[in-house]
Amino acid sequence: MKTVSHSNVIVRPLTAQDEENWRELWKAYLVFYESSVPEEVYRTTFARLLSPEEHEFHALVAEIDGVPVGIVHYLFHRHCWRVENVCYLQDLYAAPEARGKGVGRALIEAVYAEADRAGAPSVYWLTQEFNHTARQLYDRIGTLTPFIKYQRP
């Protein structure tokens, strides 16, 4: 992926030099969802995001004035209803001070562009029902589906 600009937001691939900023942003994302992960998960996830062997697992960073203010993790996977892979946008986060500045939109549009480049016709993601601020953007840039998520207890 090349670096792309959306208004004053620059979106680029995650690099090894981003670890500290990525960790801060991802930790804040997890706190927003009242969650946390052990240190091993931080280390393993960052290593996977940078690994050349992980062809389906990716991350992008959004910057404003050279400061990382947002991240997105996404992956490509097989789908039984399509020949092509589909793209799951797994985690999206914009720092509170950067909200309303186009960070979320720039990150989602960058994932859309990566999906197009990879030949993946579908990009999907989940959010919690109460995430009203983010859903205002999602309602403009995506289509709400009727699916309800279940998972193993």
Score class of each variant (00 low, 15 high):
His77Ile: 07
Tyr42Asn: 11
Ser51Phe: 00
His58Asn: 04
Phe46Arg: 00
His73Met: 03
His55Ile: 12
His73Phe: 01
Pro68His: 05
Thr44Gly: 14
Gly66His: 10
Tyr42Val: 01
Pro68Leu: 01
Tyr42His: 12
Val61Cys: 06
Glu53Tyr: 09
Ile71Pro: 08
Tyr74Lys: 02
His55Tyr: 12
His77Tyr: 08
His58Lys: 09
Ala62Val: 05
Phe76Met: 09
Glu54Arg: 13
Leu75Gln: 08
Arg48Asn: 13
His79Met: 13
Phe46Val: 06
Val72Arg: 01
Ile71Trp: 03
Arg48Val: 05
Ala59Asn: 08
Cys80Lys: 11
Phe57Tyr: 14
Glu54Met: 12
His77Met: 12
Val61Arg: 02
Tyr42Thr: 06
Ala59Thr: 02
Arg48Ile: 01
Ile71Cys: 03
Arg78Gly: 15
His73Glu: 03
His58Ile: 04
Tyr74Leu: 08
His55Gly: 12
Ala47Met: 05
Asp65Val: 07
Arg43Pro: 03
His79Asn: 15
Gly66Val: 09
Tyr74Thr: 06
Glu54Thr: 09
Pro68Phe: 00
Cys80Gln: 12
Glu63Cys: 14
Thr45Phe: 02
Glu53Ser: 14
Ser51Ile: 02
Arg48Ser: 07
His79Lys: 14
His77Leu: 11
Thr44Met: 10
Leu50Arg: 07
Val61His: 00
Tyr42Leu: 10
Phe76Tyr: 15
Arg48Trp: 07
Leu60Tyr: 10
His58Trp: 03
Glu54Pro: 08
Asp65Met: 05
Asp65Thr: 06
Val69Glu: 10
Pro52Ser: 02
Ile64Gln: 11
Phe46Gly: 01
His77Pro: 01
Glu56Ile: 07
Glu53Cys: 09
Ser51Glu: 05
Val67Gly: 07
Arg48Phe: 05
Gly70Pro: 03
His79Thr: 09
Arg78Phe: 14
Ser51Met: 02
Phe76Gln: 00
Pro68Trp: 02
Pro52Trp: 02
Arg48Gly: 11
Cys80Gly: 15
Gly66Pro: 11
Cys80Thr: 15
Glu56Ala: 13
Leu50Ala: 03
Arg78Val: 15
Ala59Phe: 03
Gly70Arg: 03
Thr45Ile: 07
Asp65Gly: 06
Phe57Asn: 14
Tyr42Pro: 04
Glu54Phe: 02
Pro68Gly: 04
Leu60Ile: 09
Ile64Pro: 01
Leu49Met: 00
Arg48Asp: 11
Arg48Gln: 13
His79Ile: 04
Arg78Ser: 15
Leu50Phe: 00
Val72Asp: 04
Phe76His: 11
His73Leu: 04
Glu56Pro: 00
Gly66Met: 09
Ala59Arg: 00
Leu50Lys: 03
Phe57Arg: 12
Glu56Tyr: 10
Ile71Met: 12
Gly66Phe: 07
Glu56Lys: 13
Thr44Cys: 10
Phe46Trp: 00
His73Ser: 00
Val67Phe: 10
Val69Ile: 06
Tyr74Arg: 09
Thr45Ala: 13
Tyr74Asp: 05
Glu63Pro: 05
Pro52Lys: 08
Tyr42Gln: 05
Val69Ala: 02
Glu53Phe: 10
Glu53Pro: 08
Thr44Glu: 15
Ile64Thr: 02
Ala62Gly: 05
Cys80Ser: 15
